[in-house]
Design a protein around this nucleic acid. Structure first.
Lengths: 233, 233
DNA sequence: GGAGAATAATTGGCTTGACCAATATTAATT
DNA sequence: AATTAATATTGGTCAAGCCAATTATTCTCC
């Protein structure tokens, strides 16, 4: 491995090379050298300038493409889309458990209003089955994480909007990621799962009653309480 | 370019190869072949099984690493972290302009309720300035895109939740990305900017009146109308 | 001189093959 | 049996090559 010429950090950086390169390119963008709309140098040239191999640069460009910073057009070049910004699902999300849970409360309580009216009886039955399975998991001392996830996702999907569904899924997974728990040293307990289950019951009761405002309030209360348990546990 | 053996889609798939490979790997995970906690085959073996080159597989693995699906350990192997899920900021967002705008309407109208009560008078003054600048831009034949963005973001930021702010920003940028416009052949016109400006005025009036429900309705109406103009223009 | 077609150059996409760094496994020694 | 050393395996990065798509330049015709 060679550390070359322009601007690359030294051996003390323990990150993967692609991450280092991606950050270097982000700096070029943020510094105004390549503002939004502009075109980066060709891969071969940029790799040489940064003193890395072209495949390593390509790995970095994929990361930048995924986070929406650049657009890659075959035969044409690499274009800056936006001033570099963190990806919504990046590690910056989740920095604050309180904010994450508040965001979920705001979003999911709005989504459930849309979902309540449109929800077929088969979906209500599916949600009922999920709560039964959740009870069973808790009774056997297991974490009903997958049932919890399905409960929230199926409600979101009933709103009939894939963008909203994906945001709800992403926020759920952010909350429950192994890294998130590990970093905070906080986990759900059988007791907190019991609370969650009874809060789910209240949500389902409101859905079954076709009462959007009650469903909204129940979802908001559930996520607010869940956030408090997570933060204070 | 060769399309090989196991499981890769045929030539009709216009996506980058790394995206195809990443989806193939996600399928292996979701199908239960490699459940969370398990270790994927070595890069050399997996690349051979999928009929692609090792660098191409590595590009896909970077995408999967970024979205939290896998963890890569040098000298050890590739481990599955979570059941595979779509990334929120991937291309799946934005596939449907109608859904994107509906999602923005749901989220931003919920967020503005939180924001209305908390909004200081300096922020109201800032929003007023933005509308003045927006008027000026429109009068001079320019697109007031940055003012539009700031208007929405400052309102979201007033809710005091960085997760929500980032989601609002991300959805705004997705709507207004150069690629999004180019792909759909649809652009804002001076006339549509006029409409947007008067809708912004109605939103600001409700904010100035400290009326969360009116603000919510105005924001919802603005984004719904904006979505209709975008889709039907 | 201008327009359109053909050709060349440039750019990204992907492959093959090689060597290095880190970790895991096996073998040898105490 | 425990420890150390050697080997194998795995991911990380590099170099070089060829193919596909786009852009720029040149050529031909009117």
């Amino acid at each position: 491995m060679q550390y070359g010429s322009i601007g690359l950090t030294t051996m003390t950086d323990a990150r993967r090379l692609y991450q280092q390169i991606a950050d270097q390119v982000r700096q070029l963008i943020v510094n105004g050298q390549y503002p939004p709309g502009s075109r980066l140098p060709a891969e071969r040239d940029l790799a040489q300038q940064l003193g890395v191999s072209r495949p390593s640069l390509r790995e970095a460009l994929i990361a930048l493409e995924i986070d929406g910073t650049i657009e890659i057009r075959m035969g044409s070049g690499i274009y800056v889309l936006n001033a570099a910004r963190p990806a919504v699902t990046g590690r910056s999300l989740g920095e604050s458990p309180t904010e994450l849970m508040q965001a979920r409360a705001v979003i999911e309580s709005a989504v459930i209003v849309q979902a309540t009216a449109a929800m077929p009886t088969e979906t209500l039955a599916t949600l009922r089955d999920i709560l039964v399975a959740m009870r069973s998991e808790i009774d056997e001392g297991r974490k009903p994480l997958e049932q919890d996830r399905q409960f929230h996702l199926i409600i979101a999907e009933s709103a009939g909007n894939s963008v909203l569904s994906e945001i709800v899924a992403s926020l759920f997974d952010e909350r429950h990621s192994p890294m998130s728990d590990h970093m905070r040293g906080r986990f759900e307990t059988p007791e907190t799962w019991q609370f969650a289950l009874s809060e789910h019951e209240a949500i389902l009761a409101a859905l079954e009653a076709k009462n959007p405002l009650a469903a909204q309030a129940a979802m908001h209360a559930h996520l607010t309480a869940s956030g408090r348990r997570w933060v204070e546990n």
